[in-house]
């Protein structure tokens, strides 16, 4: 039995960036568990020791390095990028064939069998998570699946298991609670925000950080769930269709009725005329 079925709520990752050493054990563990090939890299592809540059079909999670100066101090920070496993995911909502699915356990998983490869999920995801198999002739989408098979086997995700210091995994409310406790205990250590608690309507990946999230180049994301931006329009679809169709039918019938009436009136008039003509003829 999986964990979520016991706790009754989705699990979440808590990634405390103040405790992340940028060791990248999580990245290697992810590749190992998912048997993803290494990417060809040249030197470094970003600040610090950044490599690969970003997530891709072969890289489901990446540590983003930032190095800069702030108030005369060096800042060297590490931020683990992965699928956020949104509570109300954009990828799930935009996919025309329901290839994505938010599981009760938390992970947002993907069904390659139904995917048609339209890449709308990539446009929709506010965190730019789904990646495409650009190297393939008939490409599919790839992304972190929260190690769903491990979760099903009552194991923690591979990256969490490998992480020496920064990650916790458990029921979301419990993770939020741990995060809030840390914020309360060490207010001077942290930016007073749990990234992911409300972002995109809440996600199953939560972050704590000592640096402002924008400085670490976290994507800026609305607090409303993304699907709530498209649904108001889509919700209207049946109504609009009905309105347009009935409106146009009515309009057509009306316009054509006038014409028909006119034609009939004309006919009548003609008949009348004929009759009068006839009558007059008869008279004469």
């Amino acid at each position: 039995m999986s964990r979520a079925t016991i706790s009754g709520e989705p699990d979440a990752f808590l990634i405390d960036l103040t405790k992340c050493t940028g060791c990248r054990g999580c990245m290697v563990a992810c590749k190992q568990w998912n048997q993803l090939p290494a990417e060809e890299t040249d030197f470094f592809s970003g600040e610090g020791y950044q490599n690969p540059k970003e997530m891709s079909e072969n890289t489901y999670t990446v540590i983003k390095f930032r190095e800069f100066e702030k108030n005369g101090h060096s800042i060297f920070s590490f931020y683990k990028e992965m699928c956020m496993h949104c509570d109300d995911p954009a990828c799930v909502s935009v996919c025309p064939v329901n290839a994505f699915h938010k599981t009760p356990e938390g992970p947002v998983i993907y069904d390659a069998k139904v995917c048609i490869g339209c890449r709308f999920c990539m446009i929709g995801c506010p965190f730019d998570v789904p990646k495409y198999e650009w190297s393939k002739k008939l490409p599919l989408v790839r992304k972190c699946d929260g190690c769903y098979s491990r979760i099903k086997a009552d194991l923690k995700p591979a990256c969490v298991t490998a992480c020496p210091s920064a990650m916790e995994y458990g029921p979301r409310s419990q993770m939020v609670q741990i995060a809030e406790e840390r914020l309360k205990r060490h207010p001077d250590h942290y930016i007073n925000t749990i990234y992911g608690k409300d972002e995109a309507g809440g996600t199953s990946v939560l972050y704590l950080s000592s640096e402002p999230y924008e400085e670490l180049r976290f994507p800026s994301v609305p607090e409303r769930p993304l699907p709530s931006y498209t649904w108001p329009a889509l919700r209207l679809v049946p109504g609009i269709f009905a309105t347009v169709v009935t409106g146009l039918t009515a309009l057509t019938l009306f316009n054509h009725r006038k014409e028909r009436l006119e034609r009939e009136r004309n006919k009548e008039k003609e008949a009348e005329q004929q009759r009068t003509v006839q009558a007059e003829e008869d008279k004469s």
């Binding site: 290697v28 590749k31 060809e40 890299t41």
Partner: peptide, 22 residues
């Protein structure tokens, strides 16, 4: 972190070479 010592153990592993290739 990404490499081990004289490198035989890590410079031969693609997953680590990917992280620090040079």
């Amino acid at each position: 972190t990404e490499h081990w010592q004289a490198g035989a153990m890590t410079r031969n592993l693609p997953w680590l070479v990917e992280l620090v290739p040079d």
